[in-house]
Design a protein around this nucleic acid. Structure first.
Length: 423
RNA sequence: GCGGGCGUCGCCAAGUGGUUAAGGCAGCGGCUUGUGGCGCCGCCAUUCGGGGGUUCAAGUCCCCUCGCUCGCCCCA
């Protein structure tokens, strides 16, 4: 009687061998771009004190308010599976005094957890690769951060993509703007949708990127954030835009763009694709000069972004795109007979040590069966090691996809065999 | 969390209340136990995501549940 089969948890997805190829491509490309740009990797725990995210992301945000996987551990500590990477990176940098050693250019990658309703491009466990520049406050570091993301995405060939950006100004700018905006919206309460009414109390700036038509119409007449920015903030934003123009990175200003997390200031940006349906954001980020301070460090400017890997892979997997060819073995080892099978095991290991991809037939089966498998493996060569070869201390190399003739090699001359197979 | 759609073999997929659940791909075995690719033959869902119910009869109708999906929401 077979036991009942189990399923993975809702929103938790298995990546099978046919998927991991694309993931590895994305990861390798990202790693390469970070290395070129002098950005070092940091790895932090998946589990953190709940406090970190409440303080870092903002208690009023949806992420903290209703999307966290939080539980008490056996020591009765409140723990949370990280819903994003920035807070952890900043925590780690502070904990280990990294910021006393000058600016840090860091990247991270890995799973994040948010308890949301799953949808295409949105899962409960999802993966991000992110970049954080800590201690870099110049507008040109905004430009550089954005350029790294843009170039990485272009290199992957997931276009066409759109870069949108906005400036949220300084905390002071936003306090002033928030007052005028709330005053305006209060006067038009009747025209607001329910969600926006709710946000009016908790997080009024987020109303700006509401998709509700009536709310959008109302916002067209609302005071603009860009007009509320101080001259210094406006100038700073201009410098960022100039930098992007210098690098010929196309962008669009979106004055409604307000990032979801509390810690953003000045530059906020998003890179979106029109191929992804509702979850269109592939990369999002911005400046967060207040966060280090908020997490107990000395005030330190910072900017960062995160890429959603599932969404990226979704774009790469579009049917019209080329998939990377699956990696095939160089050699398939056909083997039969007790002595030969033992020798085949030794041979496979020796050739692997020379860097060859070698697939060893499980053995025992008829030669015809083994050749069938050799053919299907896609290997260009088969090595035949049966009783006869074994007793002569030889192995037969047989080309499977070319007209070359078979060649007998000495079993102990791995060097020569490897050279022949790599030719 | 709210609303709509969907759920038949590892993958694609027929089937719209009535005897035994098509077919294709993949897989496995054989023709061919020292030689593959092609071909031919055979095997591969007592069961239609799961559980109840209606009916003489249900993959087909109803309810619940799980999952996926689209939109809202959120965001990477």
């Amino acid at each position: 009687m077979a036991a009942e089969t189990l399923q993975s948890l809702r929103g938790m997805v298995d990546l099978l061998p046919r998927d991991t190829e694309l993931w590895q491509l994305v990861e390798a490309t990202a790693r390469e771009h970070f290395q070129r740009a002098g950005v070092d990797e940091i790895r932090t725990p998946l589990l953190e004190q709940t406090q970190l995210f409440c303080r870092g992301i903002g208690a009023a945000t949806d992420v903290v308010g209703k999307e966290m996987y939080t539980f008490q551990d056996r020591g009765d500590r409140s723990c949370t599976l990280r819903p994003e990477g920035t807070a952890s990176v900043v925590r780690a940098a502070l904990e280990h005094g990294l910021l006393t050693q000058g600016p840090q250019r860091l990247w991270y990658g890995g799973p994040m957890f948010r308890y949301e309703r799953p949808q295409a491009g949105r899962q409960r466990q999802f993966h991000q690769i992110g970049l954080e520049f800590l201690g870099l406050g110049e507008p040109r570091s905004d430009v550089e951060a954005i350029a790294i993301a843009w170039d990485l995405l272009m290199d992957l060939g997931v276009g066409p993509l759109a870069l949108e950006l906005n400036s949220l100004g300084t905390a002071e700018d936003r306090i002033h703007y928030r007052q005028t905006l709330v005053a305006f919206l209060q006067a038009h309460r009747a025209d607001l949708d329910v969600d926006s009414l709710d946000r009016l109390e908790r997080n009024p700036l987020r109303i700006l990127d509401s998709k509700h038509p009536a709310t959008q119409a109302l916002l067209a007449t609302a005071p603009m954030l860009s007009e509320a920015l101080s001259p210094a903030s406006q100038d700073r934003f201009e410098q960022v835009l100039d930098g992007l123009r210098t690098l010929a990175i196309p962008f669009r200003i979106n004055s409604r763009l307000v990032r979801g997390l509390d810690y953003y200031c000045h530059t906020a940006f998003e890179i979106t694709s029109d191929q992804l349906g509702a979850q269109a954001t592939v990369c999002g980020g911005g400046r967060y000069d207040g966060l280090v301070d908020q997490l107990g460090g000395t005030p330190t400017p910072a900017i960062g972004w995160a890429l959603g890997l599932e969404r990226l892979v979704l774009l790469l997997a579009q049917p019209d795109r080329l998939r990377p060819a699956p990696l095939k073995p160089h050699l398939y080892v056909v083997n039969r007979g007790a002595g030969a099978e033992a020798a085949a095991l030794v041979l496979a290991r020796a050739l692997r040590r020379h860097g060859l991809r070698v697939q060893l037939d499980p053995g025992g089966a008829a030669f015809s069966k083994q050749f069938k498998r050799a053919d299907r493996s896609g290997a260009p060569w088969a090595a035949v090691l049966g009783e006869e070869e074994w007793s002569n201390g030889q192995v037969l190399l047989k080309p499977l996809r070319s007209a070359q003739s078979d060649q007998l090699c000495a079993l102990d001359d791995v060097e020569a065999m490897a050279a022949r197979l790599q030719a």
